[in-house]
């Protein structure tokens, strides 16, 4: 039985080690400060700045969109619809189902909607698709904490004459702030790491997008496309991207752990 634990720890270390072992040597200043020269598939010069910036645009955009839609819904479920527990549990069930839907399905769906409206692959299409994909994660992560806020706080706020929305966004949001930040981090990690949903919707280019209507490179696809190239230098770009993505994910993991453990000073217990 101890072997199974050792195996899990070993595999995680092995993954991180192998990615860094292969990727870190290629991770030069040129790599993170330049876009690929001469085409991402054949050009030997340049770096992956296009993918870094593209991924950050995409992940920030999708996370913000998901937050703007998700936070109000999590509040709605626990404050406005407090009386309708069955309905709210139904919504929770549905969100859990959506959480399980593979990202490739969101990608395929997003793509067919794009064709229907005649929209080309673009940063915006990617942001919308990815935000739908991370929305259930965002809502459920916030909901799990909001539902455990003591009802006394709701009553206290309401008895001062606040309406439900004021209670939600001026009181509950503060009470749950560390959980909301954690939910944002988890969703951001999902958004920046997913390849299947951006494959159809965001496209890939060598340049850094200057508007949301342009296609954009992303780190996962920078790995995926450049890894299949026969040219060593291009493959190095893929491994460097893998190292960058892993670093970002590890930072997010550590940061969200620190935040969720940190004492939230205004929170009432």
């Amino acid at each position: 039985m101890q072997i199974s634990i050792a195996l899990i720890v070993l595999v995680l270390s092995l993954i991180v080690f192998s990615i860094f072992y292969r990727g870190l040597p290629s991770l030069t200043w040129e790599m993170v400060s330049q876009t690929p020269k001469g085409g991402y598939y054949f050009g030997k010069e340049g770096g992956v700045l296009n993918a870094i910036i593209g991924s950050l645009y995409l992940a920030f955009g999708a996370t913000i969109l998901a937050l703007v839609m998700g936070l109000p819904v999590a509040m709605l479920m626990n404050i406005h619809l407090r009386k309708f527990k069955k309905l709210v549990n139904g919504v929770r069930f549905l969100l859990d189902l959506l959480w399980g839907v593979p990202s490739i399905v969101y990608g395929a769906f997003g793509f067919s909607v794009m064709i229907f409206f005649g929209v080309k692959t673009s940063l915006l299409a990617g942001i919308i698709t990815v935000s739908l994909f991370i929305l259930p994660i965002m809502i459920r992560a916030i909901d799990e904490v909001v539902r455990n806020v003591p009802v006394g706080l709701l009553e206290a706020s309401m008895s001062l004459g606040s309406n439900k929305s004021q209670t939600a966004f001026m009181v509950y949001v503060r009470q749950c702030s560390s959980a909301i930040v954690t939910a944002i981090m988890i969703s951001f990690g999902r958004a920046i790491g997913d390849a299947a949903s951006v494959l159809f919707t965001t496209g890939y280019t060598d340049s850094i997008p200057t508007s949301v209507m342009q296609p954009s490179a992303t780190l996962p696809l920078s790995i995926f496309f450049q890894l299949s190239s026969p040219i060593q230098e291009v493959q190095n770009r893929a491994y460097a991207s893998a190292a960058i993505l892993t670093i970002i994910i590890l930072i997010i993991s550590v940061l969200s752990r620190v935040i969720s453990n940190k004492y939230n000073k205004n929170k009432i217990s």
Partner: peptide
Amino acid sequence: ILAGIPSIIFGVW
């Protein structure tokens, strides 16, 4: 952490 690692990284591994 294992749950948070993107699938593309598992692919590279």
